[in-house]
Design a protein around this nucleic acid. Structure first.
Lengths: 117, 117
DNA sequence: TCGTCGCTTAGCAAATCAGCTAAATGAGGA
DNA sequence: TCCTCATTTAGCTGATTTGCTAAGCGACGA
């Protein structure tokens, strides 16, 4: 993740562009959206196993989805014994998608951002 | 498009699910996000040619992106002479993505929607 | 220390996607 | 009528994605 939430300094345009890219790609898949939902509605924290047992696909497939979400900065992992606790990064989800969507809420007057895409 | 904006009756859960799916898939590609942006910041209406000339890829490729956006209900086409005018459906973009995102803004208390994904 | 549990990694196959070129279509103008 | 312009359709190719199974690995309990 090129995520700004890791550093104190505000994100550069390039970083924001990258964030948009990885987040939008991550949420493109229904199972990954579902994982985020489940995670959110179960309090924001679940082990890999708890997540995997809720899906029809095999465990390794879920693992990979989780890796995509992690790479997008939408979840973080905390190893706990032999389990892995996945934690939803709700703030990042809302910030990244929300600020993209906001461009369409303003009336089109000023002109587009320099490729915020 | 299974879009509710076409009929007067409120969308069923199944339709909303489908809408989420096609919209999120459509905005997953950077060029398609860019098309929506350009369209928005140029007033919401452009011909296929005006759109195509802003992109590095060939015209047929842009045409296909436009078809994806159209199938998602994010743009509508109005033939005008030998041109095709593409019109942004900003309301649908905001409604579909916004209402999905809203699930994460509420505190997780009530439980998830019945597979709104 | 040995087996099991929880999960990930490796690697394969099928499907989908995004780019391209070439050809087709349909409206308008000469 | 015939040509050209604006755009789409058809069809190919290579890259990426998503699913799977099998194997690996570290933590824990017996």
């Amino acid at each position: 993740m090129s995520n700004s939430s890791r550093s104190a300094r505000p994100a550069t345009a390039k970083e924001r562009l990258h964030d948009t890219e990885v987040v939008f790609s991550a949420v493109a898949h229904p199972n990954r959206r579902q994982i985020l939902m489940v995670l959110h509605f179960r309090g924001g924290e679940m082990t890999a196993g708890e997540i995997a047992e809720r899906f029809s696909c095999r465990w390794p497939t879920t693992t990979r989805h989780l890796k995509v979400l992690e790479a997008a900065g939408l979840v973080q992992v905390v190893p706990r014994g032999r389990e892995r606790l996945y934690r939803l990064n709700r703030k990042r989800l809302i910030a990244t998608m929300g600020s993209w969507l906001e461009w369409f809420e303003k009336e089109a007057a000023i002109g587009p951002p320099s490729r915020t895409v």
